[in-house]
Amino acid sequence: MDWDDAYANAPYIPGADAYPERWTAEAAKFRDQMSAAGQARLDVSYGPTARQAYDLFLPEGTPQGLCVFVHGGYWLKFHRTFWSHFATGPLARGWAVAMPSYDLCPEVTIGDITRQIATAVTAVADVIDGPVILAGHSAGGHLVARMCVAGVLPETVAARVQHAMPISPVSDLRPLLNTSMNADFRLDMAAATAESPALMQPIDIPVTVWVGADERPVFLDQARWLAKAWNADHVTEASRHHFDVIDALKDSDSEMVRTLI
């Protein structure tokens, strides 16, 4: 089996190269609009490095609660500023939306990133009252799932989490040992096991695992493994691939947003 090909998304998505540029432009426009309306708090630090910061988007009126969206990119690339516009759906339903970025491999390990996201969720939960919902895509789906394991979030924060939605998550990191990406991940079997949500017991948080029906077979497997291990709800959305499966977050009436909220 060619493991690098198995975990490669872009070669199997028509027009894949155009997605990052489009995401960046739409996200920048959204931030400008939210800033002009006085509904954005940008580049709020939660840790000692430049990438340990979050953007917070506020609805009109008192927030119903806090939604945290964690971006993907195989723990190797991207930044919160690619995804700002995906806050649109939860915002329209009255939720504040925080989007953290984090340090990337190989400068840090995946375990380090897990701890950074826990710190980010805790920091923004100190700012916004009420229930917390967590969503993350791809590597971000892994990180959101890790928040659902005992001892990752402080108990007072974990008790506020009413739903988590790992979208196209990597839930078992052991197969990544076979990829060339592991030169940057620096995983051995022990580290991969220690960061695999599908091999862990979740705390009492409702979880919905979401994946696109047109994704690579390994991502369908990864979603299924997590849903089975955690006895979680499992949605396979028709006609969606790894890059457009999160588009529904922009629509407050979409099944994804209604399920998340």
Rank of each mutant, 00 (worst) to 15 (best):
W3F: 15
A6K: 12
A8Y: 12
N9L: 09
A10I: 12
Y12M: 06
I13K: 05
P14F: 14
G15Q: 04
D17G: 14
D17A: 15
A18Y: 12
Y19F: 00
Y19A: 02
Y19E: 03
P20H: 12
P20C: 08
P20M: 04
E21L: 07
E21H: 12
R22F: 11
W23A: 14
T24K: 15
T24L: 15
T24P: 10
E26G: 07
E26I: 12
E26L: 13
A27R: 02
A28Q: 13
A28T: 08
A28Y: 11
K29Y: 09
K29W: 08
R31D: 04
R31C: 11
R31Q: 11
D32S: 15
Q33M: 05
Q33S: 07
Q33T: 09
Q33L: 08
M34I: 04
M34N: 01
S35R: 07
S35C: 03
A36M: 07
A36F: 12
G38Q: 02
G38N: 04
G38R: 01
Q39F: 07
Q39M: 11
Q39Y: 10
Q39I: 05
A40F: 08
A40M: 06
R41D: 13
L42S: 10
D43L: 02
V44L: 13
S45A: 15
P48K: 02
P48I: 09
T49G: 12
T49K: 12
A50M: 10
A50C: 14
R51Y: 07
Q52T: 06
Q52Y: 10
A53Q: 11
A53D: 05
A53I: 09
A53C: 09
A53T: 11
Y54R: 03
D55H: 05
D55K: 10
L56D: 00
L56K: 00
L56C: 06
F57G: 03
L58Q: 10
P59G: 14
P59Q: 04
P59I: 10
E60C: 05
E60Y: 10
E60D: 15
E60Q: 12
G61R: 11
G61A: 11
T62Y: 08
T62D: 13
T62R: 09
G65H: 04
G65Y: 01
G65I: 02
G65K: 06
G65C: 06
L66C: 08
L66T: 04
C67Y: 07
C67R: 13
C67M: 09
C67H: 13
C67T: 01
V68W: 06
F69L: 14
F69D: 01
V70M: 07
V70R: 01
V70F: 03
V70T: 02
H71G: 03
H71D: 03
G73L: 03
G73M: 07
Y74V: 06
Y74F: 13
Y74N: 09
W75P: 03
K77A: 15
K77M: 13
K77Y: 09
F78D: 05
F78G: 04
H79D: 14
H79G: 09
R80W: 10
T81L: 08
T81D: 15
T81R: 15
F82D: 01
F82Q: 02
W83T: 05
S84I: 05
H85F: 15
F86S: 05
A87W: 01
A87N: 07
T88R: 06
T88M: 10
L91N: 04
L91I: 02
A92Y: 09
R93A: 02
R93M: 06
W95L: 00
W95T: 01
A96D: 05
V97C: 11
V97P: 00
V97M: 13
A98E: 03
P100W: 13
P100N: 09
